[in-house]
Design a protein around this nucleic acid. Structure first.
Lengths: 225, 225
DNA sequence: TGCCCCAATATTGTCGACAATAATACGCGT
DNA sequence: ACGCGTATTATTGTCGACAATATTGGGGCA
């Protein structure tokens, strides 16, 4: 009764895609690790056929790298790559924030405002230690992107890049992330959206992500051991 | 002796991925068409195994849409989706132009300048009818993106989104595309890059793509028959 | 002793057949 | 004659076995 409460009779390959995605994102399958098909096959108790198809999809999500006749390796996601990723987020989510200011409904804005309130109590509960990064629907950035109305943009940010972002979050959960400040910035962005000021929303979002990017870039300088 | 001059012994699935990508982009496999596995299997004279893997990759490139137990269909790429796509290009390639201004070497700049000269003669040869859209390395936008230095950005624009852009080009080869003007704008952008003025390069690139987007959006209003 | 070549092994790539699900067509009842 | 349920058919999903390629270990030669 763990899974399969969904009505649609899903396929093994689809299920595997999600399971493997999660396993990689959470580090259950270590970064840089070589994926052995026979190994994973009986680890997840499936045949190699569906497994290979799932891997091809992971390839499309940028979570693994494939070289013919040599196998696939989980991506490393070095810090400089994360910096690149955040630079892209800056451009794309900035755009999303601008669009959201036009498309987001009042009720949705209110819903996100309540979401941020919940985040507030979570932060205070953990005594400002970390902005407990919720995922998917519970993530502020996720909601903003979803409200942009641009389907291609949504697919890009929520489909592919998001997994890499999650992957980085899991690894550096304690470092950086000044939670109280991030929360404040989220509120400012939402305010701009509520005022239908797309330009400001974009500016604030870019600054928000730009700060995070620089914070990561700083870590990149100094060795962390 | 047609192919396989490359040293790396490529796999059937990889070859199929490229062949199918091209077939879809050029319209050889019509948009919206349902893909039958047995059909394609003996059409390309391969087994269903590699074919399915190739399809999964096409799925990742956003060229086909898959629903479990119902098969895959080639994407339709309606005009409003193209508009969305160009909005994304605006953000991403604008960023690429800005980065290229910092990273592009002088020799590479000169090479692109010569490329634009070749484009010029091609345009004049066709009497300004169309900017004969070259692909890959011969495409101006491609070169700018490649010079950005951001690997993730390159993968995104040259790997996935580019195929959709090509797909749209093939379908509307005659419409829009004021070639002389586009060429001039390309030159201006390159000039800004040569002067290491990233801000201006970004601005010009965004304006360049924004114009194209609005041109497409205009077509979207009026029925084209 | 060190290097290179070759054989043994393991892994990836490919294939054909079987099972499960969805679409289709036929026949029955009203 | 029309609608619905059922049987048929075709397509997708899955599996296990075989072939091809890369890796690893050992042995021979300089």
């Amino acid at each position: 009764m763990i899974a399969e409460l969904h009505k649609h009779p899903t396929t093994i390959a689809s299920r595997l895609t999600e399971e493997l995605t999660d396993a990689i994102v959470t580090g259950e399958i270590a970064a840089g690790e070589k994926i052995s098909e026979p190994n994973l096959a009986n680890r997840y108790d499936v045949s190699r056929g569906p497994l290979r198809e799932a891997i091809r999809r992971l390839e499309g999500r940028g979570l693994v790298r494939h070289v013919p006749h040599a196998g696939v390796r989980v991506v490393t996601l070095e810090l400089d790559e994360v910096v690149e990723l955040y630079a892209i987020r800056e451009a794309l989510e900035g755009m999303a924030a601008r669009l959201a200011a036009d498309h987001m409904s009042d009720t949705e804005i209110e819903a996100v405002r309540e979401l941020l309130d919940e985040h507030e109590v979570a932060v205070q509960k953990s005594e400002g230690r970390e902005y407990f990064q919720q995922e998917g629907d519970l993530d502020f950035h996720y909601r903003i992107v979803m409200a942009s109305g641009n389907q291609k943009l949504i697919a890009l940010l929520c489909g592919e890049l998001y997994h890499l972002v999650r992957m980085h979050r899991y690894r550096s959960s304690r470092t950086a992330s000044r939670p109280q400040r991030a929360l404040t910035e989220h509120r400012r962005i939402l305010d701009a959206v509520a005022e239908r000021d797309g330009e400001l929303a974009e500016l604030l979002m870019r600054r928000h992500l730009g700060g995070a990017r620089q914070s990561i870039a700083t870590q990149l300088e100094k060795p962390n051991d």
